[in-house]
Design a protein around this nucleic acid. Structure first.
Lengths: 340, 340
DNA sequence: CTGAAAGCGCTTACAG
DNA sequence: CTGAAAGCGCTTACAG
């Protein structure tokens, strides 16, 4: 209780030993006599002493600090990844700091500066979409980052990105979704969301096309609308489809980019007098906490984001390596029904 | 491009000056000749040098690192606070790390250890509810933390907590909500959520009672159910009310602890055959991004969490002090209607 | 089992 | 305007 600014010198002098000895008991080394350890520990307790991670970071090879970069926490997908990563990091005594997406913006003064300055032990980067013209910029920024610290990627990672990564194969996933809807009897299936010009080979529209082809269904351009990951964009996307088509051509099922987009689709459907899932089936992606509580409860795909976040930390710490695929599970709830 | 592990010594020798001079240009001091500055800058650029925040932290009085403790990121309320805090911190060159709620758990080995060890420049703590028997433990943990670094609290902070804080006066807010519902003609108003035994004087049920009293409405115990901040708890809460009462006694309006709880109430209402808002008005709290996209769009209270997060950072950095109140705004959407 | 010394990469007076 | 030196709080060989 005496002094929270105590240093290793204070403890050493209190205990009547050298700082090297204090350091030993601090790090739990075994070559210290019980009596000495005892004395030192008492001094530590008495002064409420906490060794400085900062000083340790200067000396040692690790700062026990990790970083994470993601588009936005307001998207439950990323909040879940972050949560998983944070828990894993904290369990191992590592701090996890969030850095803004702009840390990767090569237009800024110096992209990786904030991260590099901190000598992080590693950083997790959640890559979002990759419009062709941005791809090389993002890649350059990542390469720059990598020169300073280990980098692990999460998301839809193109094969030409040479990084350890946990990959979402959205193409394969979307193909599975299409065949699920087809098995329900749907033949007019829309896809809402995705970035036009995205060069990622695992992107949703690839799997969408494949799924249609496999089911020998035609590709109807009006059923595929681009857009971001917000409810706004889901609303605008589905509204666009419904407004531009005679009702007899309306899709009977829509695949939303994520659960937030699915919520926007719900709104659009309702405002067009449609009843879900009777008139329209909707399937989301992410399995956010609120998904079961929508009306109807949202059928979606669980991406196990928490595990992914934790796993990324382990990869950063060298316990696993390479490029692995993230698992996914289709969760059936009430928003998809057999086509009438 | 040469070497990312360069130190100030490398730059000094490259530029043919002393490390003190390099340090001066690094920190933007003015007492350096243009020619020298030039030379040094070139050396810095050539080696892609980034000064170590770690080393700076050892020397200086600041580590440029902040922390935040919150219950869970999956609750959009906290995600918004975090986002605001992160943006503000990052704009000032500070890193923001998330620490788990358990950092405050005095049952653990040593509560503030992880934070104290890092010599943070300050920490934001989002206090949640305070059951009487936990109050003293939380307070003790906070006091302990405070001995190591500045602490700013966000949330429903009791007056006897002697900390700088941004306070949510949930009592006043709930009272306002009650009178809003009363103005819509409602007389049977339920309150779903809140912790029984919470000693916080600004808690919701206080304002709920006051609002009822002011409107000369009776307090009906069956209309007040306790519960946490999840959809599950909203579902269970409203289900409990509806199941235990004859329909003629069902409430016509419900005040939910937050938007997630409101979603659970939607589910409960629907499963009882109720149509919103015709048969039941529901009001939430937090104004999460998805709120406008529920059916019906959720009437709720905007808490300006992003601004609150940013403000907390400013308080930590000494730009503001004391105990201030967080603003709130009732946002009317479609989930509350005049009582029939 | 324990201690003296050097070193980690910076900043900060202090001289000049 | 610039440099030599001490110091920040630790860890890590190296002796003993």
């Amino acid at each position: 209780m005496l002094n929270e600014k105590a240093t290793i010198y204070d403890i050493a002098s209190d205990a009547g030993v050298s700082i090297a000895t204090v350091s030993r008991v601090l790090r739990g080394e075994t070559n210290v006599s019980a009596a000495t350890r005892e004395k030192v520990q008492r001094a530590i307790d008495r002064r409420n002493y906490r060794p400085s991670v900062i000083a340790r970071g200067l000396t040692g090879k690790t700062t026990h600090s990790l970083g994470i970069i993601l588009p936005k926490l307001l998207n439950p997908h990323y909040a879940m990844i972050f949560t998983g990563a944070q828990e894993e990091a904290s369990a191992r005594g590592f701090a996890l700091s969030l850095f803004p997406r702009s840390s990767l913006d090569t237009d800024a003064y110096n992209p990786a500066t904030m991260l590099a300055e901190r000598r992080l032990d590693g950083v997790i980067v959640c890559v979002e979409y990759l419009p062709a013209d941005h791809d090389h910029k993002v890649l350059a920024a990542l390469e720059e980052l990598k020169r300073f610290m280990p980098v692990v990627l999460i998301g839809c990672v193109p094969p030409w990105y040479d990084f350890p990564a946990i990959c979402n194969n959205n193409a394969a996933m979307t193909k599975e979704i299409v065949s699920y809807l087809v098995s329900l009897g749907h033949e007019r299936i829309a896809l809402v969301g995705g970035i036009e010009g995205d060069t990622d080979p695992f992107r949703r529209d690839i799997g969408y096309m494949e799924g249609l082809r496999e089911a020998r269904l035609p590709f109807t351009d009006s059923y595929r609308v681009w857009g971001g990951g917000t409810p706004e964009s889901g609303l605008a996307g589905l509204n666009g489809i419904l407004n531009n088509l005679k009702p007899s051509f309306w899709p009977t099922a829509v695949i939303a980019l994520n659960d937030l987009v699915a919520m926007g689709c719900y709104s659009a459907a309702v405002s067009h007098g449609l009843t879900l899932p009777r008139d329209l089936s909707v399937i989301g992606c992410d399995n956010m906490v609120a998904a079961p509580y929508l009306s109807p409860p949202l059928t979606t795909v669980d991406l196990h984001q928490r595990e992914t976040g934790a796993r990324a930390v382990k990869m950063l710490l060298g316990e696993e390596s390479g490029r692995v695929d993230a698992p996914w599970d289709l969760i059936e709830r009430g928003s998809c029904a057999a086509c009438r």
